[in-house]
Design a protein around this nucleic acid. Structure first.
Lengths: 175, 175
DNA sequence: AGAATGATGTCTATTTTTTTGACATCATTC
DNA sequence: GAATGATGTCAAAAAAATAGACATCATTCT
């Protein structure tokens, strides 16, 4: 068995939770479940979790997914390093867009395909962005700033909060 | 009229292009149109464009949106500073997810609501990320790295490609 | 429990980088 | 064709990063 660590599944439907548990048991070392996100923050501060699968609808009868978005935000605020995959019963494009904009790693609709779900979860964990070097981040951001300024180095330097000469030197160093 | 600059609309349906032209004329200084993305890269190198509205389906009879994704990638590669909003006739969650992951600013489905379309486009332009200071980016990335290492400064420093002492000093300086 | 290993907080001396200020040259605007 | 702003460079002073060191605290490991 490959080691994909601990997954936390949050869904208010016990039957779905059970189904997911079986589906995920062979891929993950540990499958934790919650029927409500209420205690997720305290749980995350106690337990080490590698990825979260979060259902979007918890308020009975309300299916806007608003709930899920709020919890997504709360989780990402406290634990930005844990990828969160969203899952809903409704293939709602607008909800998917809002979820991804708020930092979800992927978006899955019910009914799900077991193999595809596992593949996507693995994919998220495997492509979880490696931490880049400070120099790399700096170089990337500098390029970005210069793009925004359409090549004007003086303006770019000002936006970046460094002197023009420093920007000039950094560019030389970073090729 | 507020100044939202130039928008480039790419759609192979002339009727839709005309409708969008009228819809967008009052918001943008200039509405440029293309019936095929083939020439978009050369056009962008000649003209200054502030935002792009890109249809996802160009190969007749094929509606996977694969085409649009490829063009999205090409545009972002050459002009990462120009936000691209995707639009499709099919409310396809998977396509929306893939589009956003490749850097689209938003995802709209046909038939669209004129007011909502304009609101989303304005929103994209207004929240177009301002260029952060190098120090800010650095601080953010450092926090990120420390999160990933669960607070282990030695490991974080190694990942960041700086010495532990430097990380220590930076943390002091950046509060 | 005690040893071993690794992390932390701090220092110093040395090397790099950044800043500041300056100046001539090239481009663009008016 | 002046005026203004961007660029490429320099040199000296100030700030930051690195390497090496050391005592202390934490966490495995046996």
């Amino acid at each position: 068995m490959q080691n994909y660590g601990t997954i936390l599944v949050i869904d208010d439907n016990e039957a779905i939770l059970t189904a997911l548990k079986y589906c995920l048991a062979s891929t993950f070392d540990r499958v934790m479940t919650l029927t409500s996100p209420d205690s997720v923050i305290s749980l995350l501060s106690r337990e080490q979790v590698n990825i979260i699968l979060l259902d979007m609808n918890f308020t009975l009868g309300v299916n806007s997914g608003q709930d899920g978005l709020v919890w997504l935000q709360a989780i990402r605020k406290h634990h930005p390093e844990i990828p969160v995959v969203l899952i809903t019963a409704y293939a709602d494009v607008s909800l998917a867009v809002r979820g991804l904009k708020r930092g979800a790693a992927d978006f899955i609709t019910k009914p799900w395909d077991n193999d595809e779900l596992v593949r996507k979860l693995k994919d998220v964990l495997e492509t979880a962005d490696e931490v880049a070097t400070l120099d790399e981040v700096e170089a990337e951001h500098i390029r970005h700033a210069i793009d925004r300024c359409h090549g004007n180095l003086s303006k770019a330097a000002e936006l970046l909060g460094i002197t023009r000469q420093t920007l000039y030197n950094k560019m030389k160093r970073l090729q």
